[in-house]
């Protein structure tokens, strides 16, 4: 049901779309029919996939950096309340300031020569906060009785982290990676949009380029690949999350 229902809805939607575009005589530079988008996807597949891989590379690098830094900062928060009180507001500021407004600054500071690094930093900025916030919540939600048992048997810091804090916060971390994976992709795309032709290897640039040439079916094909990449990242972490929960509930 979980697969059949959305696929059925998609087929109905595409059928209606195909019919309506022909029925209403909508020009293809406004809304191309799904069949045209498919044809464009097939003819540009190699170009779009290579561009997609470039965007995916930026996304995964940023997500990895966000995971490492988010976990590290959350751990420091759990050790020092003062450190949390000092740093957390800045993390919130980064989160609430629109990335589209920060991105040009990052590109100027890092330099258009290092546009790849700038893209990773921009994507990291978007992906970092959910991991920090969730991991922090996970570390705080550890069963107090278990904490007491670890104290009672003289656990050292490493044992407490590795045997208790890390597995306890794992569901929180995996949930945040599901969100941050998508956000890192958005951050990567925003960075490519802002960098313009400076980041000409990525999928976002292919979409902009296609838009400039009114090749709307190629825009849609690029968007489709972006969406599929986002879904792949989301479901990969959802799979890991299920695996972890199943292991706990076997």
């Amino acid at each position: 049901m979980r697969v059949v229902l959305p696929i059925s809805a998609l087929i109905v939607l595409l059928g209606f779309w195909e019919w309506y575009v022909a029925y209403a005589g909508i020009p293809k530079f406004v809304l191309p029919a799904p069949s045209l988008i498919y044809a464009s996807l097939v003819s540009n597949l190699s170009d779009l996939l290579w561009a997609g891989l470039s965007t995916l590379e930026v996304t995964l690098k940023a997500l990895f950096a966000a995971a490492i830094s988010g976990i590290l900062f959350a751990l420091l928060f759990s050790v020092s309340r003062r450190f949390e009180m000092t740093v957390y507001p800045f993390a919130v500021i980064l989160q609430v300031t629109p990335i589209i407004a920060i991105a040009p600054l990052v590109i100027i500071w890092v330099g258009i020569d290092n546009v790849d690094l700038a893209q990773v930093i921009i994507a990291w900025l978007v992906a970092f906060f959910p991991i920090l916030a969730n991991m922090s919540a996970g570390l705080k939600s550890v069963d107090q009785n278990l904490q007491d048992i670890f104290t009672l048997y003289g656990a050292n810091r490493w044992q407490r982290f590795w045997l208790l804090l890390w597995p306890s916060s794992m569901p929180y971390l995996l949930a945040s990676l599901k969100v941050s994976g998508g956000l890192a992709l958005i951050g990567g795309v925003v960075a490519e949009f802002v960098a313009g032709s400076g980041a000409s290897a990525g999928l976002a640039w292919r979409i902009i380029e296609a838009g400039n040439r009114l090749n709307i079916e190629k825009m849609f094909a690029g968007l489709l690949i972006l969406a599929l990449m986002g879904m792949a990242i989301f479901y990969f972490f959802a799979f890991l999350e299920n695996l972890w929960l199943k292991r706990s509930k076997a």
Binding site: D143, N145, L146, D148, I149, F150, L152, Y153, G154, A155, Q159, L163, L164, P167, M170, W244, R247, S248, K249
Partner: peptide, 26 residues
Amino acid sequence: AFVFQEPSLMPWATVERNVKLPLKLK
């Protein structure tokens, strides 16, 4: 040794690993 009102077991660990915990910590 302490037994709490809640069993307070580690849900990610098997029964054996839960019981072994005090020995592992020591």
